[in-house]
Amino acid sequence: MAILSEVAKRAGSGKLVIATVASTVGEELWKDYRAIFRKLGVKHISHLDVVNRKEAIDHRSLKAVEGATAIFFTGGDQLKITSELGGTLAADEIFRIYERGGMIAGTSAGASVMSETMLVAGSSDSSYRIGSGVRTAPGLGFVKNMIIDQHFAERGRISRLIGVVAQNPRYLGIGIDEDTAIIMDEHESFRVIGKGAVYVIDAHEATESNVADAAVDTALSIFNVRVHVLSAGDTFDMPTKTPCCSPASADLAPKKRRAAALKNSK
């Protein structure tokens, strides 16, 4: 509840849109989250649910997000978010909300979709193997130079995130545990909130990798990869790729543009 309280606080007295686009049970999620956010004091709540792309193109979807100060994407299938919303009037308005300083937040699939390139599918029960079928796709692109994975420690997803980062070490791999969130500040830094940990996989100084040369089904080999584990109150500076311990009470509120990649138990 602490993470959703943070969303409610940042929505303030403005309009919060609950976007259930990723889910096949959008109406149920809408009712659940509407009740929660009302209890948290949010008075103006709207619902964006797209069953098919034709609805996303419709002006009713645009009306659902117009004038919002915060957008919250629920869990489900992140590819459904991008394929149904991408290039629509509603998506354009969401980006304008972001550019005006609004908050864009998401849980589970709604967290993964925040990055330029998103993880879509892939096994997480063994070491990463070349050609293992880990799939990526273009995300919404609110946060740069990172790939986000969620349910991270709970589902043992470190190997697949390292495998994806090995394919292009320009990207940081960000693994977010359940009941945990990162809050981005102008693409410059993020702060961790919640009960779990955030894992940062940094391969920009990797010295060797077989990801491009080994035969299919060969186990991945990569050297000199850094792994940072952050908990509540810790921060990470993106330009310098440096973690820092920070009191949870530190004033790290975003300045203008705000994006949060969230994971909670819902």
Rank of each mutant, 00 (worst) to 15 (best):
E208Y: 15
A253D: 14
A105D: 12
P169F: 09
T69Y: 04
S124A: 15
A70C: 08
S61C: 04
I130M: 04
I147C: 01
R100L: 10
T24D: 03
A253E: 15
V165Y: 14
T82A: 03
Y128M: 11
I182H: 03
V225K: 05
A2G: 05
A261M: 08
T82M: 05
R157K: 10
L252K: 12
I3V: 15
K255A: 12
S61H: 00
I57W: 00
A22M: 04
V25L: 04
E116I: 10
G156I: 07
K266E: 13
A91V: 11
S159H: 13
H151I: 01
L62C: 02
V17A: 02
Q78R: 11
A35M: 10
S265Y: 13
G67E: 05
T242C: 10
I176E: 05
A121F: 02
I182E: 04
T207K: 09
S123M: 12
K241R: 15
E27F: 01
R60H: 08
E186Q: 08
I36T: 14
K195I: 08
L40G: 07
G75I: 03
G122D: 12
N210C: 10
H204D: 07
R10T: 00
E205P: 00
V192R: 04
R191K: 14
V165F: 14
R258C: 07
G139I: 00
V200F: 07
L85T: 01
G12F: 05
V216T: 15
R135L: 02
N145P: 05
D49P: 00
I158R: 13
V164C: 11
V211P: 02
S61P: 01
L230T: 01
R53Q: 03
V200M: 09
H187R: 15
S46R: 10
T107I: 10
G196F: 09
N210V: 10
S124D: 12
F236W: 15
S115K: 00
T117A: 00
V225Y: 04
M184P: 08
A19F: 02
H47D: 07
S112G: 06
E28A: 09
A121V: 06
E28Y: 05
I162D: 01
E84F: 11
A8R: 06
R100F: 05
G41H: 10
D32R: 15
H47R: 12
L16F: 03
S246W: 06
L89Q: 10
W30E: 13
D251L: 13
E84Q: 13
N145L: 07
I201S: 06
Q150N: 09
V17T: 01
A68P: 07
A105Q: 04
I147V: 15
R155L: 08
S23H: 04
E28G: 05
R155W: 09
G133C: 05
W30M: 07
A181V: 06
K80F: 04
D58G: 03
K255G: 14
R96C: 09
T207A: 08
L262V: 15
G173C: 10
I3R: 00
M238S: 13
A91T: 13
H59G: 03
